[in-house]
Amino acid sequence: MKFAITVFSPPYSPSSRRALRFCEAALAGSHEIVRLFFYQDGVYNASGAIVTSQDETNLGHEWTRFIESNSLDAVVCIAAALKRGVLDETEARRYQRPGDGVVNVPWALSGLGQLHEAAQQADRFIAFGGS
């Protein structure tokens, strides 16, 4: 089955952790993830600037490893990200902001059209962390 996944919650929220575990289980069960789309506070999952204490999980790092090792398509909504200070190097240069909070490498900043495109391709569209 083809899944499209959206995450609306920040990395310190239980629903973001559940989203990652769900994605791991989906791939382990030979399903396909057509795209991960991060919206609202979910964009913080892509932030390279989050520091967690050593005995705590850094979910952003886990997402990055998961996305890289499975060569997944991961998109961060650009409007939601700019508003929250989660920039990539191009955007940091464009708006002359410090590049310290840049997104971890395998994520692409793009528009909401990517969410709809993924939803069209997927058999199941699952959102984590809505209100």
Partner: peptide, 25 residues
């Protein structure tokens, strides 16, 4: 489900709808 003054959610929900409309979904 959120009031317009309770944060960005109302607007961000609307933005998903508008983006979908732009793609004729």
């Amino acid at each position: 489900r959120q009031s317009p003054w309770s944060g960005p959610t109302a607007r961000e929900a609307l933005d998903i709808a508008l983006a979908g409309g732009a793609f004729d979904i």
